[in-house]
């Protein structure tokens, strides 16, 4: 067993642990290379960085909720409603297609839709719902829209992989015993699919927290998330030490949030136990 683990351990060590340790060391040094906690003092004593962290998490949370709201019904439909295997495969291909386009192209594509003279505004103005085009682009909402679009496939894939492994006789038994389809869904299917929802929401949330290209384009620089601050420190200010501090702070707070989320789910009885 241990031998089987070795390649993945080596991979983690080389491409995650080693670079992370280097970043962590850099975060604990000042510009002269001397050990210092000054970077952490600077980041934690300044409300601006806390507000940025909060904004980052708020955007990621909204993205997770939207990805769930769109992704779950989609996954349900693909796995449990569509009977034809070929059509099901086609759906999977459609769902993953966006992942093959670069996020730069995808984000600029949104401008065509959400811009002042984009399709959405044209339709709203033409239908008389609004007098003048709405500022849809370059806002917090735009970042959430852009990220949700990119993240929904991850939710669909994780949820549907769990849904298709649920024993269908369980739902049939519930219906035989007189439960309506809604009650069957709420008491049997949905609880059994929770592991997929949990895995999907973790993937979506953590990817959203670290996303750079989409927030940077969709916010139009009017909202700054942590990844943009980190990039600024590395790419334009050249303060690698403070950039490292912000990166470590983001990773640690995200880990704490994820741990808290998993702990809260563990504490709840029932949730996901049956499948595990």
């Amino acid at each position: 067993m241990v031998a089987l683990l070795l390649p993945s351990l080596a991979f983690l060590l080389a491409f995650f642990i080693a670079p992370f340790v280097m970043v962590a060391f850099a975060s604990l040094q000042d510009k002269t290379g001397a050990w210092s906690l000054a970077n952490y003092a600077r980041a934690s004593s300044d409300l601006f960085y806390w507000r940025t962290l909060l904004l980052t998490f708020r955007i990621s949370l909204w993205t997770t909720l939207v990805a769930f709201a769109i992704g779950y019904p989609l996954a349900y439909y693909i796995t449990l409603v569509v009977k034809n295997r070929a059509i099901r495969r086609l759906f999977y291909i459609i769902v993953v297609t966006p992942l093959f386009t670069s996020s730069v192209v995808r984000s600029f594509g949104w401008m065509v839709l959400l811009g002042r003279r984009g399709l959405v505004n044209d339709a709203l103005v033409a239908s008389g719902l609004v007098d003048r085009p709405l500022p849809l682009m370059f806002s917090e909402a735009a970042v959430v829209i852009g990220l949700s679009y990119i993240m929904t496939p991850f939710m669909v894939l994780t949820v549907s992989s769990v849904l298709q492994n649920i024993d269908r006789s369980l739902a049939e038994a519930a219906e035989d015993l007189g439960a309506s389809r809604l009650v069957t869904f709420l008491t049997v299917t949905f609880p059994l699919s929770l592991p997929g929802v949990i895995a999907g929401s973790l993937i979506v949330f953590t990817l959203s927290v670290s996303a750079y290209v989409t927030p940077s384009i969709m916010s139009g620089g009017k909202q700054v998330v942590m990844s943009m601050l980190i990039f600024q420190q590395y790419g334009s200010v050249f303060d690698f030490n403070f950039g490292a501090t912000l990166a470590v702070a983001l990773l640690v707070t995200t880990l704490i949030l994820v741990a808290g989320y998993l702990l809260a789910i563990e504490r709840r009885p029932r949730a996901g136990r049956e499948v595990a």
Binding site: G115, R116, R117, G118, I217
Partner: peptide, 11 residues
């Protein structure tokens, strides 16, 4: 490139 797109789309 971001600015190019803004001018191109009329933003």
């Amino acid at each position: 490139g971001g600015a190019d797109n803004s001018f191109q789309s009329g933003e």
